[in-house]
Amino acid sequence: MMSLSRGKLNTAYTVNSVNTDHEDIREFLFTLGCYPGEKVTIISKLASNYIINIKDARYSIDEDLAKAIMV
């Protein structure tokens, strides 16, 4: 297990957990389809942001969130 922030581009990772005290962000990620067992792919790393693919959509997340998503 590692955090998504250390992941490689273009590799489909399976989400293991969302490691944060903030319940709402975990809930929010869930509604987007980012929850244990689902796939997430890093498309690019820009500035300090990550562009990720969840389900069929692109999202920009910051490094803190990328660190919280364990894969």
């Binding site: 273009n10 796939k39 690019s44 820009l46 500035a47 300090s48 693919n53 692109r58």
Partner: peptide, 21 residues
């Protein structure tokens, strides 16, 4: 499949680039 890189992703790399943005 949607996780494949597209031209739009290429465009994002320039438009949202760390310094060029």
């Amino acid at each position: 499949s949607s996780e494949k890189q597209t031209i739009q992703d290429q465009a994002d790399r320039i438009i949202a680039h760390k310094w060029l943005g």
